[in-house]
Each structure stands twice: as structure tokens, then as C-alpha cells.
């Protein structure tokens, strides 16, 4: 079966973001960018499914600026077969991303769409669920284990109280959690080979999807700053402070 996997270009997870002085957004100039960590896990899972003989072809899809080609090349170096970039310079909202993906799903007819559960920049946690609704596919979010079981997919999900396993009919959308796998590093030969793999560049117009705004970003502010407190010398002082100063125990 064909597997479609999505890749988002985001600020590197180790970077401490700074809000712009005019409060319009965070500063993304000259900041290290990378593949959203959850998307990396999705790509790794797709490649493992191919190695296990479950997946026949892996298509990596990204949406965003031309520079997102770098993240698609990373996915190709890890093991995706070909890539599609839907190029758009404006901010794409999750519903727009889901609509574009739904059109790609219609064209490519994958058996499975693997996505990260959330991107670490906007922290929305929406696009996978929205795609599933629009395409009428089954959904399993926050996956920590995926197994093929006959013509169903058994997916174990990380839920608030523990773990839950669902059986999905294919085609399905699965969004992945951190504990699904440990993504591999792309080797230099694979990075070289990835440069020759096909990468199609499309636009939202190619898919007939209109970029409608569902929300307006009014302001981005730094969170209230928390000041470092005091260092205590020993347990006795700590307990005393908690009892008499903070009054929390």
C-alpha cells in the first residue's frame, strides 16, 4: 500500500524563541529550522512499514515556503520515494492544510496517511483529525504503536489515563506520538541519493483550494517572566520555607 507522510518545516526544537519587539510574531529570521520532531517520527514509521513489506511507496508532502524543500529532502534521505511541495508563502491554517491534503489523497489514493500529532510551533494538534474528517477516513491520533492485522490497522494510542488500542479500516489517518519510534539519522550516501529523487512543486491553486482565513493573529507576546527564587541550604530550610513562607504544605 501507498503511504503518504507529511513533513512540516519548523523552528528547531532546541531554539528558545523570541517575540518580535512590535509583538506581531516571533522572530524567525536567522533561526535554525528543521523537520518538526513529530513529522520525523512519522517518516521513520513509514520507512519501517516499507522495510517490513507493508508499504510499497512513500510519498512525503510538505506545505509552506520554497525553503521547505530542505525538509522534504531530509524525508527522502531517510527513505521516502518521492516528494510533493505545495508552495505558499502565506501562513497556512490547519484547515487549509487538511483541504490540500484531502486533494492529494484523492489523487494518490494512499492506504495510510501518517502525520505528526502536532507541530511544535503553532501547537495546534488539528490537521490530521481534519484531514480524516474531510476524506471520510478512519482516524487514530497520538499513536505509540502501529500494526497491520489482516485488512485492519491496530493502533495503540497514548490517552490521558494510559493506552487505548483501536482497529481501523483502511484507508486511515494516523497521527504519531513521541514514543512510536526512534528516528534514524540519514547517512551521507542517502543524502546524496535523495537529491536525485523526484520532488514536485505545486501551488494551492493547482489543487483548487482557496486560502481562506479562519482566524486573525492579533498579537504575540512573551509569557510572564518567572524569576528565579532562592537557593536553600538544606532540607530543613526547604521545609521551613514551604511551610512558613510559601504556605503550601
Amino acid at each position: 500500500m501507498k503511504v503518504l507522510v507529511t513533513v512540516k518545516r519548523v523552528i528547531d526544537y532546541n531554539v528558545k524563541v523570541r517575540v518580535l519587539p512590535d509583538y506581531t510574531d516571533v522572530d524567525l529570521k536567522n533561526v535554525k529550522m528543521g523537520v518538526n520532531p513529530f513529522c520525523e517520527i512519522a517518516v521513520e514509521e513509514a520507512v519501517r512499514l516499507k522495510e517490513a513489506g507493508v508499504a510499497s511507496e512513500i510519498i512525503a508532502v510538505a506545505m509552506g515556503p520554497a525553503s521547505a524543500q530542505e525538509q522534504l529532502r531530509t524525508a527522502l534521505a531517510i527513505g521516502a520515494d518521492r516528494a510533493i511541495l505545495v508552495q505558499a508563502e502565506e501562513r497556512l491554517e490547519p484547515l487549509t492544510v487538511a483541504k490540500l491534503l484531502a486533494r492529494i489523497v484523492e489523487q494518490e489514493q494512499p492506504g495510510l496517511v501518517l502525520m505528526g500529532k502536532q507541530s511544535i510551533d503553532t501547537d495546534n494538534n488539528q490537521a490530521g483529525q481534519m484531514l480524516s474528517a474531510l476524506s471520510g477516513m478512519s482516524q487514530a491520533t497520538f499513536a505509540s504503536r502501529i500494526e497491520q492485522n489482516g485488512d485492519e490497522l491496530h493502533v495503540t494510542r497514548e490517552v490521558d489515563g494510559g493506552l487505548q488500542t483501536l482497529a481501523l479500516k483502511l484507508p486511515a489517518v494516523v497521527t504519531v506520538d513521541l514514543r512510536l519510534n526512534e528516528p534514524r539519522y540519514a547517512s551521507l550516501p542517502n543524502i546524496m541519493k535523495a537529491k536525485k529523487k523526484p520532488l514536485d512543486i505545486k501551488t494551492p491553486e493547482d489543487y483548487g483550494v482557496e486560502l481562506r482565513a479562519h482566524s486573525k493573529l492579533l498579537k504575540v507576546e512573551p509569557p510572564p517572566v518567572r524569576q528565579a527564587g532562592v537557593k536553600v541550604a538544606d532540607v530543613a530550610e526547604l521545609v521551613d520555607k514551604l511551610k512558613n513562607e510559601a504556605k503550601v504544605i
Binding site: P94, L95, N125, G128, M130, Q139, F142
Partner: peptide
């Protein structure tokens, strides 16, 4: 925005063709 809320609401939004404001 529990795991159930995160799982369900974006689907509702998509069915209604509206955006969602998370969290």
C-alpha cells in the same frame, strides 16, 4: 483539551468548514 477533546474537536471543525482555536 484532554486527549478526547483534542481528538474530537478538529473533526467537528472540519465538518463545519470552520477553523479551530486550540488550547
Amino acid at each position: 483539551s484532554t486527549s478526547n477533546g483534542k481528538n474530537l474537536m478538529p473533526r467537528v471543525a472540519a465538518l463545519l468548514d470552520v477553523g479551530q482555536i486550540s488550547d
